[in-house]
Nucleic acid binder design. Sequence first.
RNA 1: GUGGGAUUAGCUCAGCUGGUUAGAGCACUGGUUUGUGGUGCCGGGGGUCACGGGUUCGAAUCCCGCAUCCCACCCCA
Length: 403
Amino acid sequence: MVKSLRGMNDILSEDYERFTYFINLATTIAQKYGFHFVETPLLEETALFKRSVGESSDIVGKEMYQFIDKGDNDVCLRPEGTAGVVRAFIQKKLDKAGGIHRFFYHGPMFRYERPQKGRLREFHQFGVESFGVGSVYEDATMIMMVADILSACGIGYKLQLNSLGDQNCMPHYRDSLVSFIESVEEEICPDCQRRKATNPIRVLDCKNEKCQSLYTEAPKLINALCQECESDFTKLKKILTDNNIAFEIDTNLVRGLDYYSKTAFEFVSDKIGSQSAIAGGGRYDRLVEFLDGRPTPAVGFAMGIERLMELIVMPQASREGYYIGAMDEEALDLVVSITHQKRKSAKATCEFKTKNLKNHLKGADKVNAKFCCVIGSNELKDGTIWVKDLEAKSEKVISLKEF
RNA sequence: GUGGGAUUAGCUCAGCUGGUUAGAGCACUGGUUUGUGGUGCCGGGGGUCACGGGUUCGAAUCCCGCAUCCCACCCCA
């Protein structure tokens, strides 16, 4: 039997109900915040991600579905959503048009990772990107939007917050951190020795106990912020506090993608195992410029839909529509025609087998219909139909015209 | 990519130190004395025990390999 590829799932039945419930809910909220849907290709030039996500990230270094297409182009399946949206933003010359542009998207992403719970090779993200607003109010707005979406889904979370600094303060901090790492280089774990070169900030959240004890002496980014980053971060904390959004500062919080600066945030859940980040985002004021656009401040976030799935609290499904069946062979054709008519205005299920009343009621109950409608020999003779409201438990016989 | 655990019916799982035709609950399906469901009763279908080898008179059970899922690392949503 041919099976789906490792780490790639089918979404159907109840999962699909849940999936679309989330998408619809998140879409409604994003639209309330003034965001517009954008769809970008699943396949992009590999160079786009090398330049945006950054080659130091494992995502680009070893997790991309990359290949040469028949036209000899180096292409890959998108491992994340932001790069494509930024590319589209620049390609449509919205950077030159100026003004504010707010987008949301959802769709599959691909990373060649070793799968585990909450980590798939094809997974789905819902994300938003805001271009043209440099104000930290927009950062706060992003966080509020995530909080709104999660709350609407009935999902509990913890919000972790950090500032990554900007091009003024981050390089200085990075230098001082690297020289600190060099001072303890002999004693740290091999992973950290590798990180020193690829992504030195990452050493801070190493899980090795020995490393952690050494890093208590390390310089903290939060103490090295320049004046602008410092005041933005202070302002952000005030806005969140004013709006009753609880957060904790995590000075070790690092976004995995190179393009982030200033505000970084992550929403985590303690109910879904080790892959606990359910949403993450931050500011990326330099990315548009990196991708050859006019410098444009930007901020965004992405949510991992598979990680949310089991946390979403669905509203109870209510009875809906009609179940229509026959108790006599002779009434079957009529029942099919009636169902066809009924479907112009409502959900209707037609039973093709004749059954006794009891079994029709069972059938109606199984498809969660609100009305069970049956035609037997009496009704066929009189041109009527028997209708029972399964919620109100009331029943009546009405003419087919009335029905 | 590294280390560990699991895999038996559509689902959740039993199945002892190898021993007749591999079980349960749920789900599905049929019937239930006069036309009343979700909540009665009786029946039925469904499993090359993940897959491939090996040991044995005999393997769901022991051994090896492989695939997938799960856990930790790594990475990240």
